[in-house]
Each structure stands twice: as C-alpha cells, then as structure tokens.
Write a protein that binds this DNA or RNA. Structure first.
Lengths: 345, 345
DNA sequence: CTGAAAGCGCTAACAA
DNA sequence: TTGTTAGCGCTTTCAG
C-alpha cells in the first residue's frame, strides 16, 4: 500500500502545475538553460505558488554538496558559556553564510580529544557538510592531519601552527595590540608587568607571550611573571592571587582574554588591591561587557565578527562557491585604553 | 579548486569487501534482520576498515529523517554576544543531541521578522532538519502558525503564549525565583522597588512583571517603577539613569537578566550611587560572570543547561526517536543571594 | 528548445 | 537467511 505521508511537494508537482517537464523546472530554477520568458515565468510562478524549494537531501545526494558548513567547538559547556568569544565568531560567519543559503552545523564536544575526532569524522563520512571552520589553532594540531585524511576542506581562524596544511585567516599585523599594550603600561611607569596566558596548547599562547617578552625587552625590561591559566575563572583567580602575594608582585597584568581579566580583577579585589590604583589590568578581545565593568576594561580589541566573516568567505571560495568575494583583510588588534590601567603606584 | 574528493566509499564497497549483499549490510548496520554472528562480524569489520558511515543525504532522501535539528536565533549579533544565555542553552541541547548522533543546525538572523520566517521556511522546505527548538516565546508568536503550516515539529523553551500549539519545556514553579527576590528585598527593608523588564513582546516579560507586582501587593506595596528595556546595554543604562534621578527613586531594582543588571549597576555607578549601599540589584539567569563582579550579583538562577537538555529530549521523543528518555523536570528558578543586595538605605 | 531517463547512496518490500 | 529491486527528489546528459 502506498502509504502517503504528509507528502512533500516535489519538483514534479511544480512541473505539472507549470505544464512543463521536471528537467525544465530544474534548469530554470538553477538558471541553467535558456527558455522563453513565458515558460520561465510560469515555472517560477508555480514554484512560488507551491512554496517549493529543492530538497537539500536530494541535491546533496545528487551533487555531493550540502550547502552546510560545520564547526566543532571543543570546550566544556560551562567554559564555553563563560566566554562569549565564540558567539561573536559564529555570528560573523552566519552573516556571510545565511545570505548564500548555507547552513551552519554546530557541534559542541567536551575537551575529550576522541569526541572531537569523532565529530569531524562523522561530519565527513556522513557528508553532512562541505567544509569546516576551525578555531583556536593548537600546537601540533591533530586536526590538520585528520582533516586531510578526511578530505574535508577547512579554514582555520587564527595563527596556524607551523606549516599547517589548512588555509587560515588572521588579522593583519597580528601582534600589534600586544605591543601597544606593553608600550602603554611602560609609559605609565610600570616596570613589573606580568602576563597570564591561556592554555599552552594554543598556538597564540606562545606567540603572544613571545611578543610580550620581546616588547618588554625592547624597553630593557624583563617580564615580572609569565603565568598560565585555563578557561576556568577559578584557575585564573588562584594564579593571580598567588602572584600578587609574592615578594615582588607585578603592578600590571596583561591577560589572554577579557573574561580572564575580569577573574583577575575579582581576585585582586578580594586581596584588597585596588584596580587600577595598585594594579593595572589589560584584557583581550574587547567584549561589550568590558565597558560595563568598573573600572571599564582596557583591552586589546580583536575584530571577532570580521574574523568570522573572513573565515566563512575564505571557505566558500575554497569550495568553489561562485560569486563569493575574496575575504577582506581583518584589522589589526588594537589597544583600547579605558579605566583599568593607570600610573604605576 | 573544488578538488573533487576521491569518490566516496559506499555501502556497496562494504558489501563487496564483506562478500554479502548491500541489503545485508544495511540491515546489519541498522540492527534490523537477524544474521549469523560470523556474517555480522565480517560486515562490521568491513565497514570499519573502510571507515564507512551511511551518507546523511541518502538516508535523509530515503527516509525523510535528517537527524538534525534546527534553531534560529533572532537577535542581532552584537546583542547575541552580549548575552551568553544562548550559549548555555545550546550547550545543553548538544549534550543530548551529540550522543544520539543528531546535529544542530544554527541560524542567526537579525531581528527582522522576514529573515526569521525565511529561515524556518528553508529549514522546512529543504528538509534540512527534523524539527526545531524555539526560545523566547513571544506574545502572539507568529512562529506557532508558521511552524504548523510548515509541518515542522517544534519544542518551545519557556512559557508558551496562550494555547500555543507547540509543546514547551519550562521549569517547575516558574515564578518562584521572582517571588523569592521580592521577599528578599522587602525583608531587607526596601519599599521602593522597581522592575526593569526585557522587550514587551516576550511572553515572560509580562508574566514576570505580573509576578513581581503580585508579590509586592502581597506585601501591601506597589511597584516603584516598572520599566522596559531591550537587550542593548545602552538602553538599559539610560532607563536606569532616568529612574534614579526621579523624585522618588527606587532603592532596589530587579532586572530581567544578568547583563541588564550589570548595565544597570554601571549606570548607577556613573551617577555616583553605591551598589548595594544606596541601590540593591537583582539579576536573572545566574551567568558565571555574576560571581566575578564586584559586588557579586544577587540573581535568580535559571538552569539553562537543563532547559536545553529537556528541550532536546522532548523534541527527540516527539520525533519518535527510540530510546529517548522522558525529559526530566527542570528545577524551579531560585534566588541566589550574593552581594548586590543589602539593607535599604 | 525541451523532455525522457539514468543514476546519486540508501532502505525496505518482495523473492529466492 | 540472504539477495534483488524499486524508488526517495533531484540534476544532467542525450535524444527528439
């Protein structure tokens, strides 16, 4: 028995209504052949009337293009939430994907590497997406090899690790913001400046720390401390607490991101240290949040929205999507001076 | 470019390697028929060796199930970013979806209604997802009708609007947190208490304000002010600034979410008002952020993670996904007293 | 110019 | 028990 479910309207319904063949509909809708204007109009009218759009599954099956791109985020949910960073990146990507009718398939896996690998593998094997966007480039990034094996086109947001086989999008003059931050602090008279970095496995962690150190050396200074934290506020808090209680505590700290800076400020305050009176703080990213804090956060602005856009565009071009403009260059990170930095005590 | 991949391994490759028919592979992989253990093993081994998983497109085309669910967020990117709310909801959903091999297709549309409608329409017409999760139930929610027309299964997170045709997941005893907040403030001696709500078109806006007012009446009080803001920090700031400069300013304000509370605190501080000395503040959501602020935020905790999980589970069951447990009930919102509330001045 | 027909990879009747 | 086969909805030769 021909069990008819809420039967979907198909291309043949449109063809029937327009009084043409299915192939005519296909061609007209995809702007392929050349047809008399009258036919074109009738077909388009019929498609519109029936509210028909081609089934993504059928198109994908036929042409091996899904018009979807994937992103797998390997951060624990609670830490993800603590860092609005991703939301901005995703929003940026979406603003380029949506108008081109591309979907974004998101996977949030924990920090377990095997879950991450599995996610990419499924994306590829099941042919769910045409390509993926990676963030948070890692040292010895296992994803580079994996994605090559999977033949899954990819674009990386951020500094590639060595000769990463994956094309990447980055801000021009990537280290400018950090240099400015160091200069700014030195100008304010700070001599004991510390850096609290994110996890060591991130490529940018090493880079930024190197820039930090180099720039201090440029001023004939050495880092007061270089510390490492993860994305948990608690970790950052205890690291900061410890260093502030050391013999020669820093008078200024640069943090790898705004949320860490906030956690740092919170820890300092708990020790009764005034920010910026006794301790200057510089964040990184410039989340909108920073302007609501007291003191308002001095931070290194990254144009996350544009990075997201650029990544999407780069991937789309790579996939051969026609009419995709080249990704515009992303502005260099720059220092936004607000209230959390002041003269050294 | 657009390097065509070495043609994908298909079910017939697996069948060939295992020396059986394709249907045998299909059945075995999907655990359908009954086969001798030896055959089963050989097939599974072959599938594994070839790293084969069924093409999502083919499966979808065949069975009309995509194993993907959709979510469209209608908030401007910058405001999205300002509110980590969604990230938590999404993470919660993912933790139930991922283990069942469901994907999450995310669309971020602006606040333009037509973009939103288009997104749902495409999701349905192109059969990209099996169902959708809605958030932020709206008054006269146009999505209810739309999704019914589209025959797109849906689950709503939050209080439904009237006889919303869409099943919804909600915390038990939804208004408990607000009642506790009011009681708490009254206990502290506050008599002039204001409420700053989110956009009027959200269902919960009206509900919470009603609860707020009712609970005050219970204490034989009237609201000092009831104000409305949108999700932009600036709006909240100016609303708060104005009310604090009025003749009889409130000594306590309850906000519709934590980010608004933060914006409010920031505005108060700019007027030189001490929080909580001169103004007590209560937030809503309990973002991790709240504990890093100074003063730490007193807030109404919502279990966003569980709401996300419950929504996913409910939808999956609705879709007939076997082995999906019923969604556990979501704990009632409750007041977390921290430092932003204190005795009335 | 237009239409008929062959699959894309998979599942589920139906046969053997 | 296992294999054969007919489509799912679409695009794309290839005839007409």
């Amino acid at each position: 028995m021909a069990q008819r479910r809420t039967s979907r309207t198909t291309i043949s319904d449109v063809a029937a209504l327009a009084g043409v063949s299915v192939s005519a509909v296909s061609k007209i809708v995809n702007g392929k052949g050349s047809f008399p204007e009258a036919t074109r109009e009738r077909v388009l009218w019929a498609a519109d009337r029936l509210r028909w759009s081609p089934s993504a599954a059928a198109v994908a099956l036929r042409g091996a293009k899904t018009r979807a791109i994937g992103m797998v985020v390997n951060r624990a949910p609670d830490l993800l939430n603590a860092d609005p960073h991703f939301a901005l990146l995703i929003a940026g990507m979406e603003s380029e994907l949506a108008p081109r009718d591309y979907g974004l398939l998101l996977h949030i896996v924990g920090e377990r590497p095997e879950a991450e690998e599995r996610a990419y593998r499924r994306l590829a094997d099941e042919r769910r997406v045409d390509g993926v966007v990676l963030t948070e480039s890692r040292v010895n990034d296992p994803r580079a090899v994996l994605l090559r094996d999977l033949h899954l086109p990819a674009v990386l947001i951020g500094a590639p690790w060595q000769e990463h086989a994956i094309p990447s999008v980055e801000a021009t003059d990537r280290e400018q913001g950090m240099k400015d931050a160091v200069d700014h602090l030195v100008d304010l008279g700070h001599r004991r400046i510390a850096y609290v970095s994110g996890p060591e496995d991130r490529v940018h962690t090493g880079r930024r720390r190197a820039t930090f150190t180099d720039r201090l050396r440029h001023h004939r200074l050495l880092p007061s401390h270089t510390l490492t934290s993860d994305f948990a506020a608690r970790t950052t808090g205890s690291v900061v607490t410890e260093v502030l209680q050391s013999d020669a505590p820093p008078t200024a700290i640069v943090f790898a991101n705004d949320m860490m800076a906030l956690a740092g400020i919170s820890a300092a305050r708990r020790l009764g240290r005034d920010v910026p009176g006794e301790l200057s703080v510089v964040g990184h990213d410039d989340l909108p949040l920073g302007q609501l804090l007291h003191p308002q956060l001095t931070t290194i602005r990254q144009d996350l929205d544009h990075m997201g856009r650029a990544a999407a565009l780069t991937l789309l071009r790579h996939l051969g999507e026609e009419g995709t403009p080249p990704a515009p260059s992303v502005a260099a990170p720059r220092l936004i001076v607000r209230e959390s930095t002041a003269k050294a005590p």
